[in-house]
Design a binder for these strands. Structure first.
Lengths: 227, 227
DNA sequence: GTATCATTCAAACGTTCGTTTTAATGTCAA
DNA sequence: TTGACATTAAAACGAACGTTTGAATGATAC
């Protein structure tokens, strides 16, 4: 039988994923050597190639482990809202909050690696490596499709192209804000904001994003060419 | 005399900076080897260490070359606006447009390396390397101070802490939008947006950012605790 | 022409990289 | 106990890394 590995399920795998998550955040993918990684994880150097095949495959596993459940939760929450609404279009702010909630929940998981992962994820959209950007795109695609449809229903008068851009802006704001949690001080004097609160951050982000989404249409843009 | 280098002023330096700018964008800092870089620049392998001292110093030079003039232009434009206003506070949207204009102008410089630099810059705020983030912060600090003061004058009723966050959000949206110019298609179907126009992008960004900046205050946040 | 200096060049420095190999270890079925 | 199998371990692989060296090059000042 080959279902023997149920005893120590995949402890080595988990140790590697945890260490990789934190080190990738702190030092980037190329800045994290297999020797440092396996040393931090307390496993043998060859363990990564044995369990994952290669460093690149490990990177992909790190993203999949957290991002798949996170996006599943996003979709589930959206469906919950739509069921409650019973056919009526949702309020834009409700959609926005459903989308950002899982990110912020993961940030509050400071003890687990959630915080590290969120920052890592925020960087991934603009990573130099095209395969990594493509991976992120693939993992986000299903949830993005659902949310785009929800926004279209909530804002039928907004031109499709304009909605694309505004979702892009919103997505970017969220990604950057979560990735650059220590960059606020570049704007504020120099205080690193005493132990910032994810719930409070959501309360600040949601109105900002919602106002942007509902902003007046730009002058010359859009499908309909008005004087 | 040591002012001999005026003939071929610093052609090798410029060649290196241009190649570095493009390669750092395409492959990241650690993903760009000195051999590849000097090969693309058409100079000797030792030239980088001779002219800049080290790879890290080259990275800093790449940022300084473009970012210093860019931020100087931002400050100059803001001062121009303030002189025109003759003491009256500026319109928030005018401040926003003054800030984002140099970025978008540089994007339109597609033939020069401006486009590459902008994307590189958009990634730098969230770079894993703390020295790089610190460098960016230092280079931005003077302009950021001026713009923060301008926003405070334009929006005296907005709590200071709230302004910090909203500037952070706006800054993040701009940085991400410029860095992830190929990520829009993750949201839209799959069309890479036919040759996107910087001016049009500004027309879309400005209303979005302005609406976010002027959004209603969040419920529980802020200095003044209103029911 | 000769000395001076900045710059370029080819070659090598020692180190670290991701990965592979081969042997040891431990665990379960029979 | 024995054989099969998944996992771990130590050591080595060749390649690529950033940097340094010391000699050639070429232009300027005298």
């Amino acid at each position: 039988m080959n279902l023997r590995a149920v005893k120590p399920p995949h402890e080595t795998r988990v140790r590697i994923l945890d260490a990789a998550e934190e080190l990738f955040m702190q030092r980037g993918f190329e800045g994290t050597s297999m020797r440092l990684l396996t040393s931090k994880a307390g496993v043998n150097l060859a363990a990564v190639n044995y369990h994952f095949g290669s460093k690149d495959a490990l990177i992909e596993a790190v993203f999949r482990r957290r991002l798949d459940p996170m996006n599943a939760e996003r979709v589930a929450e959206l469906e919950r809202l739509e069921r409650s609404a019973a056919g009526a279009p949702l309020a834009p702010e409700a959609i926005i909050r459903a989308f950002i909630a899982p990110s912020l929940a993961m940030i509050e998981d400071a003890k687990g690696g959630g915080r590290s992962f969120i920052r890592l994820l925020g960087r991934a959209y603009t990573d130099p490596s095209k395969p990594i950007r493509a991976l992120i795109g693939t993992l986000y695609a299903p949830a993005m499709k659902r949310y785009k449809a929800a926004f279209e229903r909530a804002l039928p008068e907004l031109p499709a192209e304009e909605l694309n851009w505004r979702m892009h802006f919103m997505f970017g704001t969220l990604a950057y804000t979560l990735a650059a949690t220590d960059t606020v001080q570049l704007i504020a004097g120099c205080k690193p904001e005493d132990r910032y609160d994810a719930r409070l951050l959501a309360e600040r982000l949601a109105p900002f994003l919602c106002a942007g989404l509902l902003a007046p249409l730009p002058a010359g843009a859009g499908v309909k060419k008005a004087a």
